[in-house]
């Protein structure tokens, strides 16, 4: 947390509404995006986002700065999203098979990616969004936290309360599952990467 943000958080905690609004402005888009990926639709994402900031407002006096504000906020976002999913599907969705014992699927082939063909790329992106929505919740959330929110493994571990090793393996399994989804829905072709492409990857 930057010292400026720390200052803002302290002011907000002391009841400064303008400071609180600054925090809302800084994070609302990210929280909305997280909620959108969790819930799968804009209307619910809006509701969950509002709920997240209400919880932040309510519990801010209890925030002791033992973690970064953003970590604390993301944890609230994750919990609010999960609460929402539980309400929407009591005893259903969250109990789906998404344990960490599940093996990796290595049926990952190339995405049909050619920069000059924007339409296909848009289709692929939509397929990725659909694939994330189709992931079991535990896998979905780890992809969201890593690739949507950009959290490090450390931060993900802190938000979800899991070990680094679990972050690593769960993320691999989640992406493997996502890739399998894309293959099944025909968004990957079977073209092999050339050594030249590998060189490009290596140099990036």
């Amino acid at each position: 947390m930057t010292s400026r943000e720390q200052d803002t958080v302290r002011k907000a905690r002391a009841g400064d509404e303008r400071a609180f609004e600054e925090l809302v402005t800084a994070y609302e888009k990210k929280i909305y995006h997280i909620s959108l990926r969790y819930t799968g639709n804009e209307h619910d994402a809006m509701d969950v986002t509002q709920e997240v900031f209400l919880r932040v407002f309510r519990f801010l006096p209890q925030f002791q700065e033992e973690s970064r504000f953003s970590t604390w906020l993301y944890r609230i976002a994750v919990n609010a999203s999960l609460d929402f999913l539980r309400r929407r599907s009591p005893g259903g969705e969250l109990s789906l098979d998404d344990t960490d014992d599940e093996g990796l699927t290595l049926e990952v082939s190339d995405p049909r990616y050619q920069p000059e063909r924007e339409l296909e790329r848009a289709e692929l992106r939509q397929a990725v969004a659909d694939g994330i929505a189709a992931l079991p919740p535990q896998m979905r959330e780890i992809v969201i936290l890593r690739d949507i929110s950009g959290l490090s493994y450390d931060e993900i571990g802190a938000v979800l309360g899991i070990e680094q090793g679990t972050v690593k393996s769960r993320l691999s399994r989640a992406r493997s599952r996502l890739a399998a989804f894309l293959s099944e829905t025909g968004n990957y072709s079977r073209k092999s990467a050339s050594k030249k492409q590998l060189e490009v990857a290596r140099n990036e």
Partner: peptide, 17 residues
């Protein structure tokens, strides 16, 4: 190599959402 390239593209698209 094939998996790596596919994974890289997929992650890239995810992050571009």
């Amino acid at each position: 190599r094939r998996r790596f390239e596919a994974l890289r593209r997929m992650v890239e698209e995810t992050r571009a959402l």
